[in-house]
Design a binder for these strands. Structure first.
Lengths: 190, 190
DNA sequence: TGGAAAACCTAACGCTTGTTAGGTATAGTC
DNA sequence: GACTATACCTAACAAGCGTTAGGTTTTCCA
């Protein structure tokens, strides 16, 4: 049978990194395949050896982003502790993956599925998959039966995701932001 | 002196409406001048009688959006009532302008200033101007001295703005969402 | 009713875009 | 050391983009 061995000079990782960085910095629509190729030391046409289209490249970056956020949050969920404390750690992990860690996580928040109609569904499914994980941390909270867990989840997640708009590294740390937000909901200091 | 009278067949309002609708539906980068012109019953070149560039057109739409949101929130601020109650009304007005009222308000949230570098500063200033107004509703709250008003403002505004992502008209009304969010922070039922 | 500005059309420019067909060198396997 | 799939380059395509110069019609005012 034919040997299907990858080679060492494969620049696919470079392509993904460059795409993630540019999608995050400028947005998907404004970034051209030539931009990505140039940052990878390649030419535009060569990208089509790895991806069938620009949209497929986005899906790959997006999926990697979801994967990283998921991994960070899953780790925060595993650690022991009281439910509110664990939620705070989950939010801190979410924020870290969103603001500090890498370009991949930021792409997941920055790029709207609707902006790329042809793959909008796949992107939305990827994001929804993660949000179900986040919901677990909210469901574990000891709340009154009539409490609106959905509203709490949507509010918290929205506030976290929007932080990409105003966050400037060097001021508040993701952990500090997460603590403040969760305590506003916990209502101990109000 | 020469008469500078505008004419009745002026299609500028149509152009603004079409641009607002398309910028909201598809995003700024994906929308072409030809799309906007076609929806206004005109040709692409004709748009340049009203606007010097595509970016200028965006600024006009964006400014109108900020104006409408501001008007709605100012009205909510004028009405009498207890501070928490007034904040709830402000949030409801903000959400209405964002989700229901028109395309203009949605453009303000949907289009990121960074996506359009040449006019990013002007867009950001427009948005900041409004957010200072929103801050007044938060500053009026009777909180403990050490309470973090900035975090509360950022959390609430982020949660509201992000609602554009998951909101589907027909389910929850903006007023209902605003009430739930504000009460989560007020902490009376938790 | 004449004149002039307002509002738009026509037609095209130069450029960038995503994408492709076909050729080439390199690396790993037998 | 021949062979083959891998990984990329070359060169170009058609289509769409924002924008512009110059001409044409329409509306308003005096």
């Amino acid at each position: 049978m034919p040997a299907a061995a990858p080679r060492a000079d494969n620049r696919l990782p470079l392509v993904l990194d460059a795409a993630a960085r540019l999608f995050r910095e400028r947005g998907y629509a404004v970034t051209s395949m030539r931009d990505i190729a140039a940052d990878s030391g390649m030419l535009a046409g060569s990208l089509y050896y790895h991806f069938a289209s620009k949209e497929d490249l986005l899906v790959a970056v997006y999926a990697e982003g979801v994967k990283r956020i998921t991994a960070a949050v899953e780790e925060a969920l595993r650690a022991p502790g009281e439910p509110w404390e664990r939620l705070e750690r989950v939010c801190a992990a979410h924020l870290s993956a969103l603001l500090d860690d890498s370009d991949y996580g930021q792409v997941v928040i920055r790029v709207r599925p609707d902006d790329v109609p042809d793959v909008a569904r796949r992107l939305a499914e990827l994001r929804n998959g993660y949000e179900r994980l986040f919901a677990r941390a909210v469901d574990a909270l000891p709340l009154a039966r009539k409490a609106d867990r959905r509203a709490l989840r949507l509010m918290l997640l929205g506030a976290l995701n929007w932080s990409q708009t105003w966050y400037r590294s060097g001021q508040d740390s993701p952990a500090a932001i997460a603590r403040r937000f969760v305590r506003l909901l916990h209502g101990s200091t109000l």
